[in-house]
Design a protein around this nucleic acid. Structure first.
Length: 334
DNA sequence: CGCATTTGACCATA
DNA sequence: TATGGTCAAATGCG
């Protein structure tokens, strides 16, 4: 991580450039929205440029990572699956002796971490969250201070291929359409390589992912939370009044960039938040969740006026609605 | 029937 | 002690 200062600089430069473009684009789009189109051409041009820069940035990031030697060492014994010691059959219901004996993987911090933000078109549209890799949800939890629960995923091939990758997905408090995705660990499964390869070539997640060799992408990807279109009434107490206060940057267009140590998410729209600096991921928030253990999205869904399925459109028009976060200090990304 | 998701509980860290 | 992260049984869906 320390080495390759040159590439690092280049990378930062690239990213900064992208940011600039994003801002321009943001402005353009704002105008465009108000006037009803006309600058579309310019926007597209900008997007193209941005894509190029992003692509370069990704490559740089990759090379940096590669040279910096891969950190991340499997949390001991392969995933440090702690309690698993019991073989996963702790008799139904009895005390699950969670490995207290083994120090196991409490080292959550040890894993390389990188967070990105993914924007969806509609509350139900979570296709952007499909990074081309197959994830299996293993848990969900309400986070104190956060309006929405956090979902936990791990690579589907964790057991078959000992893939250590895992990620956490959570809606941001301010913008229901924005998801914070935090990746932990690196993908060691065949799928990772495939996904990476596809990405470098070009961005066509929709079609590419399905071709991942050793790994079959789970259909609609793992959703952060039960994003069901059917927003049945939910007497939930977690009022998600958030009126989409996206105080975040809305610069349409563009794709993804991630300095993720594993595989670059194929996500159509997402923004890099931190290349792994440290605490890039913070869920600051409003009201506590508490109470209802899940499905806060129901409210979101209901909030969303049009139940139209734009999910697919995201794949076809990845440059439709992506945001870029304000990267305060690019230099500190590493 | 098999797999993925849901959900409640346990455990470690801050 | 509180909170977050993970596990694993139960349930649902394909």
């Amino acid at each position: 991580m320390e080495g390759v200062p040159d590439e690092k600089c280049a990378l930062v430069a690239e990213l900064v450039q992208v940011l600039e473009m994003a801002r321009h684009l943001e402005t353009r789009m704002a105008v465009l929205q108000q006037q009803g189109g006309g600058e579309h051409q310019q926007c597209r041009a900008l997007l193209s440029t941005m894509r190029a820069s992003i692509d370069r940035a990704v490559h740089l990031a990759v090379s940096c990572r590669a040279e910096a030697a891969r950190p991340e060492s499997p949390p001991s014994g392969g995933d440090g699956s702690p309690r698993s010691g019991s073989g996963g059959s702790d008799q139904a219901g009895e005390v699950r002796g969670r490995g207290n004996a083994t120090g196991q993987c409490k080292k959550r911090k040890a894993l390389p971490k990188s967070s990105i933000q993914v924007r969806v078109s509609t509350v139900q549209d979570v296709s952007p969250l499909d990074d081309g890799l197959s994830w299996r949800k293993y848990g969900q939890k309400d986070i104190l201070g956060a309006k929405y629960p956090r979902a936990y995923f791990r690579c589907t091939h964790r057991h078959t291929q000992s893939c250590q990758a895992s990620k956490q997905v959570q809606r941001t408090d301010g913008d229901p359409l924005l998801f914070d995705v935090v990746y932990h660990g690196t993908h060691t499964c065949a799928q990772a390589a495939a996904a990476a390869a596809h990405h470098h070539g070009n961005n066509h997640p929709a079609t590419d992912q399905a071709t991942s060799p050793g790994c079959v992408v789970a259909g609609p990807a793992a959703l952060p939370f039960s994003l069901r279109p059917a927003a049945s009434n939910k007497p939930t107490g977690a009022a998600a009044d958030d009126g989409a206060t996206s105080s975040r940057f809305i610069a349409t267009g563009c794709t993804v960039v991630t300095a993720s140590p594993f595989v670059y998410p194929a996500t159509p729209d997402c923004q890099l938040v931190s290349g792994g600096g440290g605490g890039g991921y913070a869920v600051g928030g409003g009201g506590g969740v508490a109470g209802v253990p899940n499905v806060p999205d129901v409210e979101l869904a209901s909030t969303t006026n049009s139940p139209m399925a734009m999910g697919e459109m995201d794949f076809m028009f990845p440059l439709d609605a992506a945001d870029f976060l304000e990267l305060e200090n690019p230099a500190s990304y590493f």
